[in-house]
Nucleic acid binder design. Structure first.
Length: 313
DNA sequence: ATAGGTCAAGCGAGG
DNA sequence: CCTCGCTTGACCTAT
């Protein structure tokens, strides 16, 4: 069996919106007390989400990037120790990690589109580095890595008109990360033709600095680099060494919902649920992050459908 | 209680 | 030139 775990991103709809790791605020209202309260609630709820995941057999979860609101934001950024709840926060994350470990759940993260290591703008790069270090801190505090690490996955961001030069800046800026954070970085293929295909990432990033590649099956069709999905998967999956790779699976919103959304929805937009089959024919063992708007509900529905067809397991 | 406006960050695509 | 979508929609305020 090629697929190990199938997971969802950031929000557990089954638990309702009262339980979330997404609580944030706006800058105008930011203060350190507020940040401390939000962060603590987020971390405490992560324990509940890990319990839910374990009981429901969903062993892959992407944690929200908002867990510590504005922690790395210029001007208001703070260290964890500045939060008056910092000890409880650490304990909560440790406990969430313990629960995850108990059930064999993999946790990882996916910083947003503002995280760009290849930028020619120093302010963007230093903000990116602060951001990645924050994600890595969460990974440290969870302390639940096993055969899969807490990988921090993000895109190249842009090619700034020169793919190779931008990839080179990425590789150079990697050296500015702590060694702990550096080991957790992974990079994902883009969904725009002019940007980085799996082949580009393999040749310009992996071969230069060994950063593993997350293969996004859906993105691949918009940026193939001349490879079939099977060829691209093969290339990406062998960049992970001893660790279990991550791939992304999603489907176009247009196909599922074209009547409701009209013709303007981009093909890249995600559907609520997935109706196809997650590829289990790629080489090796890997975890699949399902990127669907119905989150955990989409994963549960997928399993129900599969079980209905093939019987249990 | 809910709707509408607003909200950190960079970048490219589309109108 | 402006808006949307991507990361991850959520929060605040007014009714």
């Amino acid at each position: 069996m090629a697929i190990r775990h199938i997971g969802f991103a950031c929000i557990c709809l089954s638990l309702g919106k009262g339980i979330t790791t997404n609580r944030g605020t706006i800058l105008r209202l930011f203060d350190i007390e507020r940040a401390s309260n939000l962060a603590l609630s987020n971390c405490q709820d992560l324990i509940k989400i890990m319990e839910w995941n374990g009981k429901n057999g969903i062993k892959f979860f992407r944690i929200s990037s908002d867990i510590f609101p504005f922690m790395t934001h210029e001007g208001v950024g703070y260290k964890l120790e500045q939060l008056h709840h910092h000890l409880q926060i650490k304990d909560s994350l440790k406990e969430a990690g313990t629960v995850a470990k108990k059930y064999g759940i993999r946790i990882n993260s996916h910083p947003g589109p503002f995280t760009i290591l290849s930028s020619p703008n120093e302010k963007v790069v230093s903000a990116t580095i602060r951001d990645i270090e924050m994600h890595s801190l969460v990974g440290d505090l969870l302390d639940c890595e096993g055969e899969s690490r807490f990988n921090i996955n993000f895109h190249m961001g842009s090619d700034y008109g020169d793919k190779k030069a931008s990839a080179k800046r990425y590789v150079e800026n990697l050296t500015r990360l702590s060694s702990g954070a550096r080991k957790r970085i992974t990079i994902e293929n883009d969904d725009k033709g002019k940007l980085y295909s799996v082949k580009d990432l393999y040749e310009m990033i992996y071969q230069d600095c060994g950063v593993p590649i997350v293969f996004d099956v859906h993105h691949h069709q918009f940026c193939t680099g001349g490879l079939t999905d099977k060829e691209a998967a093969k290339l990406a999956l062998r960049t992970w060494g001893a660790y279990v790779p991550e791939i992304h699976y999603s489907e176009s919103r247009t196909i599922e919902n074209s009547v409701l959304d009209g013709p303007k929805v981009r093909l890249q937009a995600h559907s609520d649920y997935v109706s196809g089959e997650i590829p289990n024919y790629y080489d090796g063992t890997y975890d699949v992050m399902v990127e669907a708007k119905a989150k955990d509900l989409a994963v549960l529905k997928y399993h129900r459908r599969k079980n209905a067809i093939h019987g249990h397991n």
